[in-house]
């Protein structure tokens, strides 16, 4: 595993020199995010700043794309004897909540001798959100990539270490055959703030040409609402 990396080019935190014209009104007083998010955003833990130096890891996972606004890469090191994750490093393209959430995830996974693999597979976005002291509602979707990237890294570890029987599949099920919309698409829509059938339809077109699936869609919306915002 690469040695602990500290960001080298971190912007100086020295205060602004005192000769600018507009007087502040306590620019520190209100921040969109919690103190914990702020801490993890400005001082990310386990962040990789030079991916070319990342060698000796046991699993590598990547999810998202720059087009959708968030992309995440996770490296893990595993204590094979005890089946625990001993180190997790990451890179993230995204906003403060995405960066904060990945940083927090890396802490959760590696604290107290490291998390058991089986437990790491069950980490949910709201576990991370909770530890962050909450996220603004419309930012919650930024935290959901972390657990997916972690599962992807664990799967990669399973593959590399010949444990194919342990591979976990990210399941998605077609709900609307006409519009080719999966339960995963509905989950995404809910995470992006669609809380009604109409709003989800606007994003996914689910059930518009196929009204028979609407009761199931409504049930899924309630389920994901409960899961993420309940």
């Amino acid at each position: 595993m690469a040695k602990k990396i500290t960001p080298k080019n971190k912007p100086s935190k020295k205060s602004v020199s005192a000769d600018f014209d507009i007087v502040p009104n306590g620019s520190n007083e209100s921040w969109l995010y919690s103190k914990v998010v702020k801490e993890h955003f400005f001082h990310p833990k386990n962040l990789v700043t030079d991916a070319s130096k990342m060698t000796g890891y046991d699993g590598l996972g990547m999810v998202g794309s720059p087009a959708c606004g968030d992309m995440m890469k996770i490296w893990i090191k595993v204590d094979k004897k005890n089946d625990r994750i001993t180190d997790m490093k990451w890179q993230t393209f995204g906003c403060a909540s995405a960066i904060g959430a990945t940083s927090m995830l890396s802490v959760m996974v590696t604290e107290k001798k490291g998390m058991l693999i089986d437990k790491a597979l069950t980490v949910k976005p709201q576990d991370i959100t909770k530890r962050l002291g909450g996220l603004p509602t419309r930012k919650i979707h930024c935290s959901v990539l972390g657990d997916k990237a972690l599962r992807s890294a664990i799967n990669n570890y399973f593959l590399r270490s010949g444990q194919k029987h342990r591979l976990v599949e990210e399941q998605s099920r077609i709900i609307d055959k006409v519009a080719k919309v999966t339960d995963h698409d509905i989950e995404e829509a809910v995470l992006e703030g669609a809380s009604t059938l109409e709003a989800v339809q606007k994003k996914t077109k689910v059930g518009i040409g196929n009204p028979s699936v609407i009761p199931e869609v409504e049930q899924l919306i309630r389920f994901y609402q409960e899961k993420y915002f309940g």
């Binding site: 960001p7 700043t49 992309m71 890179q91 993230t92």
Partner: peptide, 17 residues
Amino acid sequence: KLPGIVKYLRQASPVIV
């Protein structure tokens, strides 16, 4: 300030366009 912040955020990002 700007060039340093950009450099830092780019190092922390897995995206290379």
